[in-house]
């Protein structure tokens, strides 16, 4: 089993509903967010092209945060999701510095927090909060090992990219282009 997410950059309108849904579902403290929306503009005026991406922890296969964690608090859960065990986290910040995507933050209570792929929902057979609320249905979540899952089907049909693959992290959020 390998959980992954595919996000259609051609369908995303950048409404930030995924951000609000995540904050509500996961009780993210005010002033923080686990996911965010990036607008990337390429070219020179008037030939401009904009890509909109909903970003979050990439749940990397080769996760630098798991590698540098001194206590084993950052770990791979079943299905490859990268999670933080709050009881083991000492709040040293090494994983925050190690993430090329800046996807982690220090929770006001002291431990490090980040996107969990909404494992508490996924375990019950539901989709992550961000995926379930997306008004343009541009996000797909599922198991890469299952050829019939939403994410496998989309990655077969469409061209895709990942963010900073040259950092060697093997990210598992795929952007359909």
């Amino acid at each position: 089993m390998r959980y992954a997410m595919a996000i259609d950059t051609k369908k995303c309108v950048g409404c930030s509903d995924c951000v609000v849904a995540c904050q509500t579902e996961n009780n993210v403290p005010i002033g923080y967010c686990r996911d965010w929306v990036v607008e990337a503009t390429d070219g020179t005026y008037p030939q401009l092209e904009t890509e909109i991406r909903s970003e979050r922890c990439n749940h990397c296969d080769n996760a630098p945060c798991v590698r540098c964690c001194p206590t084993g608090s950052s770990h791979f859960a079943e299905g490859g999701a990268v999670l933080v065990d709050h009881e083991e986290c000492i709040g040293c910040g090494a994983c925050v510095a190690s993430c090329p995507y800046d996807a982690r933050y220090m929770h006001p209570e002291g431990y490090v927090d980040k996107c969990t792929f909404c494992m508490h929902r996924v375990e019950k057979g539901m989709k992550p909060a961000c995926v379930s609320v997306c008004p343009t249905k541009c996000m797909y979540f599922g198991d890469l090992d299952d050829p019939k899952s939403d994410v496998s089907v989309m990655l077969k049909k469409r061209k895709f990219k990942t963010l900073i693959p040259e950092a060697g992290t093997k990210p598992q959020i795929y952007y359909l282009i």
Binding site: T41, I52, M106
Partner: peptide, 23 residues
């Protein structure tokens, strides 16, 4: 030329706009 901005207003303390996790 390429420009990327976070449009959802992410301002995580000690992360944005520049990482400053260690003082």
């Amino acid at each position: 030329m390429r420009e990327e901005i976070i449009v959802s207003g992410r301002m995580n303390p000690r992360i944005d706009p520049v990482l400053n996790i260690w003082h």
